[in-house]
């Protein structure tokens, strides 16, 4: 119990991942949903770094760098979309973004 194994990191990662998912599914504010996605990405990153250390392989850390880069790109584009949408509909409520329903 006191010994910290990769399983602990994985459980931490899974918990953080679930918190992010719950945020994505439950919140209606699009900005908070995006932040939840960032949490999910962080959960993944923790896993990668932990296993990189465990396996003494730098590939995991390289992946983290790429994930951060992709997260930056995603945040930039996603927030641009939010601004454009807000400009048109005066809202960021995801329930009101439902033009693709039947």
């Amino acid at each position: 119990m006191l010994e910290i194994t990769p399983l602990h990191y994985s459980l931490l990662s899974a918990a953080l991942f679930m918190i992010g998912v719950i945020g994505v599914l439950v919140r209606r504010n699009v900005i908070i949903i995006f932040m939840s996605i960032e949490l999910i990405l962080n959960a993944v990153n923790i896993n990668l770094v932990a296993l990189s250390d465990q396996l003494q392989d730098l590939a995991g850390q390289v992946f983290v760098v790429f994930v951060i880069a992709v997260a930056a790109a995603e945040a930039a584009v996603g927030l641009g979309i939010i601004i454009a949408f807000y400009r048109n509909k005066e809202t960021v409520n995801i329930d009101e973004i439902q033009i693709m329903r039947w």
């Binding site: 994505v24 599914l25 439950v26 995801i94 329930d95 973004i97 439902q98 033009i99 693709m100 329903r101 039947w102």
Partner: peptide
């Protein structure tokens, strides 16, 4: 089509 709500969170 009830499933086709247009609500992204449902899909997610």
């Amino acid at each position: 089509r009830r499933a086709q709500t247009g609500l992204i969170q449902n899909y997610a």
